[in-house]
Simulated assay, not measured.
Amino acid sequence: MEHTQTYDDSTAPGEDGVAGAEGGRLVGSDRVLAVLKELARHPGGVGLEELTRAMGSPKPTVHRALGALRRAGLAGQDARGRYVLGDEFLRMAFAHHEARPEHVRVRPVLAALAHRFGETAHYAVLDGHEVVYRAKVDPPSGAVRLTSTIGGRNPAHTTAVGKLLLTRQLSSLKEVEAWTGGSPLERRTPRTLCAAADLHRELEATRERGYGVDDQENETGVNCLALPVYLTSPTTPSGAVSISALAYRTPLATLVDALDEIRALLGPLGEPHR
């Protein structure tokens, strides 16, 4: 389901002089950034009318935000006059991604896993209630389109990576309940764990076995196994590496049976040093 947000043309500078949220509406720089994020959802370009409808904002408001982004090189227009992300934005994004030390170090491991299992391998980190994908390698052949993209996000409670990393933060049912905010979690598939008590039991099992699993909880027909990796600390995982597989082709039991081989492919990156 798509969500729209309403924007206000007014600005409400705070103590730092930067406009922020006012009455639940995004204004100033927040509004411009929201337009930038919406542009990223349309790699083939988007017209002003369509962009205005998607954001639920007045056309002049969106047009002014686009003007600011174009002046900064963060947005542009193609030959058809449709708005796209600008070359400067793409340059910064790719340069930053390629320069990440973790990306450089973990990619050979992902490539080895993708080649061995013929499935997609990821490296992801935990960010609040979501996981963020920092690196991804598809297999040489037979790849399928998953919801994951580099820089993309998924709910932590629906993913093997997220549940594995949450075991470091949530050790009791009370902490899990506080993390959920007392409300049922988003349901992605019929197998998604949405209740705090169910998630707590899964985190306990994950902590005991030392790896995370996603049994078609984020995408129907796709399962996943995740192991921690230690790229920035000798004792605390920086994130986790996972193998996302088509359930009919590589069942979850197959990945679990290959756990020792997966750990061997991770090598020192998968071993804490105390």
Rank of each mutant, 00 (worst) to 15 (best):
G14D: 12
E15R: 14
D16Q: 09
G17D: 08
G17H: 02
V18I: 13
A21H: 03
A21L: 13
E22T: 10
G24N: 12
R25W: 10
R25M: 15
L26R: 12
G28N: 10
G28T: 13
G28F: 07
D30G: 15
D30E: 13
R31G: 05
V32S: 08
A34N: 07
V35D: 01
V35A: 04
V35H: 00
E38D: 13
E38K: 09
R41C: 10
R41V: 00
V46T: 12
L48S: 07
T52C: 12
A54C: 05
A54F: 01
M55I: 03
G56I: 14
P60Q: 07
P60F: 01
P60Y: 08
V62E: 02
V62H: 03
H63W: 13
R64T: 07
A65T: 06
L66K: 01
L66W: 00
A68P: 00
L69T: 04
R71A: 15
A72K: 09
G76S: 15
G76W: 05
Q77K: 15
A79T: 12
A79Q: 13
G81L: 06
R82G: 02
G86S: 07
G86E: 05
G86W: 02
D87W: 02
R91I: 05
R91T: 14
M92R: 15
M92L: 15
M92D: 09
M92N: 05
F94P: 00
A95C: 11
A95S: 14
H97I: 01
A99N: 14
R100V: 07
P101T: 11
E102K: 04
E102R: 04
E102C: 06
H103D: 01
R105K: 15
R107Y: 08
P108N: 11
P108E: 13
A112Q: 10
A114P: 04
R116T: 11
G118Y: 02
T120Q: 06
T120L: 09
V125K: 03
L126K: 04
D127T: 14
G128P: 02
H129W: 09
A135S: 14
K136N: 00
K136S: 03
V137L: 02
V137D: 01
D138Q: 10
P139L: 08
P140G: 04
S148W: 01
T149V: 13
I150L: 08
I150W: 00
I150Q: 07
I150T: 14
N154T: 14
N154I: 03
P155L: 12
P155G: 06
